[in-house]
């Protein structure tokens, strides 16, 4: 006996133009990947003509936990030597690319 469900949840990512990144737009329910793509198209692309859609089973997405952000992302901003302005360039030369 099969339970009457609304199927699994899939996250939808749409790329609107070549050269642009895929962007998360929402989710759909579908029984398999083909249906997930079709539903994603019907729900999230009724007007714009995207160049690409990705669908990913929602429970396959691994995400950071906001409560851990402090510790998890902290190392990023204490390494000032990662930023170009940390360095002194002698006068008279330019190292910037124009």
């Amino acid at each position: 006996m099969i339970n009457d469900t609304q199927w699994n949840l899939w996250e939808v990512f749409v790329q609107l133009k070549t050269g642009k990144p895929h962007e998360h737009v929402g989710s759909v329910h579908a029984s398999d990947k083909e249906m997930a793509l079709q539903n994603a198209r019907d729900v999230y692309a009724r007007r714009d003509k995207p160049v690409s859609i990705w669908v990913v089973p929602s429970d396959n997405i691994v995400a950071t936990i906001p409560q851990d952000n402090e510790a998890f992302f902290d190392p990023a901003d204490d390494k000032v030597y990662r930023h170009p302005l940390f360095y002194k360039i002698p006068k008279g030369v330019s190292v910037d690319i124009h």
Partner: peptide
């Protein structure tokens, strides 16, 4: 729509 949901689930199972 119940039978459609059930049929699609059965089809997905069979395919996987």
């Amino acid at each position: 729509g119940k039978w459609v949901r059930e049929a699609a689930t059965a089809y997905a199972k069979k395919k996987s």
